[in-house]
Design a protein around this nucleic acid. Sequence first.
DNA 1: ACGCTGACTATTA
DNA 2: CTAATAGCCAGCG
Length: 126
Amino acid sequence: MKGSKHKQSLNKILPSGKPENDFFNQVWELVRQIPKGRVTSYGAIAAALGAKSGARMVGWAMNSSFGQNPVVPAHRVVNRMGQLTGKIHFPTPTQMQEQLEKENIKVINDQIVNFEKHFWDPLKEL
DNA sequence: ACGCTGACTATTA
DNA sequence: CTAATAGCCAGCG
C-alpha cells in the first residue's frame, strides 16, 4: 500500500487557523465536477450541500475560489435565470462569457441561451 | 461587538 | 403582469 491515496487530505488547515473544509471548499469541489459544456446555479449548489447556508454564500465562496488549485470553473456557475450576474467579479467582465462560448454555450446579453438545456443539477446528476 | 453588504431565491403586494 | 421585500449566513469596517 504505498501511496494509494484515493483522496487527498481534505483537512487542509490554513496557518490562519481556519479550516479549509468549510462550506467554501465543498462548493469548490462541486463546481469542479461540473462537466464541460454544462452550467449550474448557486441555489442548486447550495441545495446539494444541504441549503443550510443559502445561495448567497455560494457566490461568496466563488469569490474566494480565485487562485485555487485546481482552478474552479466559476464561469459555469450562474444565477437561477441563467444570467451571468457574476461576470462582474471576474478579472475581466468578458472572461466569463468568453469561457462559456469556448464550451459551446451561447451567451446573448449576459443570458445563457437554452439555459435549462445546459443546466447541470448536482443533486440529480450525482 | 454591531451593523451593512453581498456572484441569490422565493414570496407577497 | 411587474416591483419590492424578506430570508439566508459569513466576511469586513
